[in-house]
């Protein structure tokens, strides 16, 4: 058995979208330092259930840091104190005995709280639907080797394509901007030859949808990059800005 610690949790509890919500203090005793943050919440929920209280609702799925389902503000930091780490991959060895841990859902007008730590991130799906793809139908693809991609471009595109859509960038941003999320997809596809045909339309449509969803503007705080579990660089935001500016100018020139 590994060492254990005792914590005091201050957890955001909210019945549903219309409830005002409040913080609840929950003691979390005998937590193994080798447990993950979500395993700690599992244990707390087991105890709450046996005490006849309702467990804390939180989104999670793969528990390997790749599905993007989990996430919460832990002591004011998206996904907690470790860099490049989703909440499911954060381990309790990074906390100390006696700590108070404040746990809140992502905060953003565009991510309404559904219950406790669970938020509605469907705005991200609608942004992707606006143009975050290459419009190729099944079955008409050319031979894969007919589209060579220089390795450096492919690697850069991959860096951007790693986005897991968790929403930490929005939660960390003082303006609740979704620029890093949008930039990651625009950047991924604009760097590849396959993405060229729709390049301008994509940048314009995705940014317009982001605005419609009520996300804020980017004012270069770079909190998004610091919170991103995949370490996606704000350099992609610069690329998005170039793409968008170019697309807007070209729209005026060529209609």
């Amino acid at each position: 058995m590994s060492a254990t610690i005792d914590l005091t949790l201050k957890v955001w509890r909210q019945q549903d979208r219309s409830d005002a919500g409040h913080f609840e203090t929950i003691e979390a005793k005998d937590i193994s330092v080798d447990a993950s943050f979500l395993e700690m919440l599992d244990l707390v929920n087991e105890r709450l259930t046996l005490d006849g209280r309702e467990p804390i609702a939180f989104d999670h799925d793969c528990r390997e840091g790749i599905c993007g389902m989990c996430g919460a503000m832990v002591n004011g930091q998206a996904h907690g104190p470790e860099s490049k780490t989703t909440l499911c991959q954060l381990h309790m060895r990074h906390f100390s005995d006696g700590d108070t841990v404040v746990i809140e859902p992502w905060r953003s007008r565009a991510f309404p709280v559904l219950k406790d730590l669970v938020v509605d991130r469907s705005a991200f799906d609608r942004i992707i639907a606006a143009g975050g793809y290459v419009s190729v139908r099944t079955g008409q693809a050319p031979e894969a080797h007919s589209i060579p991609v220089p390795k450096n471009k492919a690697d850069l595109a991959f860096d951007a394509a790693q986005c897991i859509g968790c929403g930490a960038c929005v939660a960390a941003c003082p303006n609740a901007s979704a620029m890093l999320f949008v930039a990651a997809k625009v950047s991924h596809l604009s760097l590849l030859p396959q993405g060229q045909a729709e390049r301008r339309r994509r940048a314009r449509a995705m940014v317009a949808q982001m605005d419609r969803e009520g996300f804020g503007n980017c004012s270069n705080h770079y909190e998004c990059e610091a919170a991103c579990p995949k370490g996606i660089s704000v350099a992609h935001i610069a690329r998005l800005n170039r793409e968008h500016l170019f697309a807007s100018v070209m729209e005026k020139v060529t209609g």
């Binding site: 793809y133 290459v134 190729v136 099944t138 079955g139 693809a141 050319p142 031979e143 894969a144 080797h145 589209i147 060579p148 991609v149 220089p150 390795k151 492919a154 595109a157 991959f158 394509a161 991924h188 596809l189 590849l192 396959q194 993405g195």
Partner: peptide, 22 residues
């Protein structure tokens, strides 16, 4: 073989060699 063609056309960033091929 069709799957790889399809996914590459969608912009799936498979690992590539320095020559730009998969």
């Amino acid at each position: 073989v069709n799957i790889i063609d399809q996914c590459v056309a969608q912009g799936v960033p498979f690992a590539r060699e320095y020559g730009g091929l998969l």
